[in-house]
Design a protein around this nucleic acid. Structure first.
Lengths: 236, 236
DNA sequence: GCCATGCTTCGGCCGCCACCGTAACATCCG
DNA sequence: CGGATGTTACGGTGGCGGCCGAAGCATGGC
């Protein structure tokens, strides 16, 4: 095997509780400072700095320095997908050991959150369900498909579909997207280009907003209306 | 976070060189004994037993005992996908540090191998390319699609397409499949239901055969003919 | 019953690494 | 130019865990 040592190195980096905490916190695709990450991991800034240095040196994270701050973010989408897949295994393994913490913060995350660049939680699953029910999207757990009406629907709500048109498949004329199994709802939500566009547009239009700099996302009254009337989604 | 400790536990299990070796060896979906796994990892059976016990207790592996042997296999497809995703990150990180070992065994793996339940290497990528070129499959890197002609093609070469018909999507009438980025070729090959059926059928028909109990797969003369004439694939 | 084989358990050794306190370095502000 | 804040570097400590040798259980063959 050519990359066995690298494989173990990468997995070991993700295998420390403190580093795992930081990776989780970075899963929304934003960049956070060392101090912020130290707080979420429950360790001192010095220790966090060491962890961040290791992960950056390995290439899991990338740094963007602004003034006296250094913003850390996931270096590539593949890292986010890896974290997702490990989360998926962890969720698979312990269907019994769950329901530990059900604090309000956890509840907010279950309700809606970002997952690297798209929506997850009941928000993400609810929108995906609605788009499947209306025939705009098809999913079978391993792959997803945006139909022709789905493409028109996205354009209708103001999303720029030019990049999707460019990647429309040659024969069927449809756009492929990636489903992503939700770790809290255990059902797929929309990722890939379609999920990212939906998420970015929702935040830009004020249909949803981030909660105080966390991954949690809340639906605004305006969003409730749009999601109900345009998407046909019932979100709680 | 509800499953942070579990996440770190799972990743840490994969983060040891010896255990990573074993996981790699199990990636073809078959079951191996502790002694075999100890040999591939380069450690003693006692140590291997400890590792296997940990991974089994955590749920990454499952045991099937036959007589005085205990066969270990990956407990779930999600574990295989996790290993794939970590391999992908490892391959992303070090495009330079590669080309270490190019021994004959490594070359055999690059030529063709199984990846849990489907083909990978130049064999897997070549077949995928051929099916894409003939319009039987469409792929955009994040999702895949088996077209109507592709479905007929698979039925024509003797593959039972009943399970695929059952999962045919409601609106477009096509079958979704999962692409899987090849770590040696860096291009997608076919996974999911379609990839698994293709792999199983090829082995059953004698188009391909396993090399002495490893992941490596060789194409038989008969297979060369079938892949060239029916698939239109050039495999070296 | 006896031995061989596959596997696991136990005990001890050793090294790696997470963690923190302290301190140095960088940057912005007044 | 101080002082405050964010970040990194260093030294020391403690503990977890990988590793092997030796011994203890299982299973199958004779």
């Amino acid at each position: 095997m050519v990359s066995n040592a690298l494989f173990a190195e990468v997995a070991a980096l993700a295998g420390d509780p403190a580093r795992a905490c930081m990776l989780h916190a970075l899963m929304d695709g934003r960049a956070l400072t060392a101090t912020e990450l130290a707080r979420v991991a429950g360790i001192t800034p010095q220790t966090a700095s060491g962890h961040l240095g290791r992960m950056t040196a390995a290439g899991l994270l990338s740094i963007e320095k602004q003034g006296r701050h250094r913003y850390h973010r996931l270096a590539a989408p593949s890292v986010a997908r890896m974290v997702e897949s490990i989360m998926q295994v962890a969720a698979d393994l312990a269907p019994d050991r769950r329901r530990f913490t059900v604090g309000p913060k956890d509840e907010a995350l279950r309700r809606g959150r970002t997952c690297y660049d798209h929506f997850a939680g009941r928000l993400g699953v609810g929108l995906a369900d609605a788009m499947i029910a209306s025939g705009h999207v098809e999913i079978d757990g391993e792959a997803g498909l945006l139909t022709e009406p789905g493409l028109a629907f996205l354009a209708g709500i103001g999303i720029d579909t030019a990049p999707m048109l460019a990647r429309r498949t040659r024969v069927s004329g449809r756009v492929l997207c990636r489903p992503c199994l939700d770790w809290s709802e255990r059902r797929p939500h929309l990722a890939g280009m379609v999920g990212a566009a939906l998420c970015a547009h929702s935040l830009a239009q004020g249909w949803t907003r981030r909660l105080d700099g966390t991954r949690a996302v809340a639906v605004t009254p305006k969003g409730q209306q749009v999601f109900r009337e345009a998407f046909g989604a019932r979100l709680d």
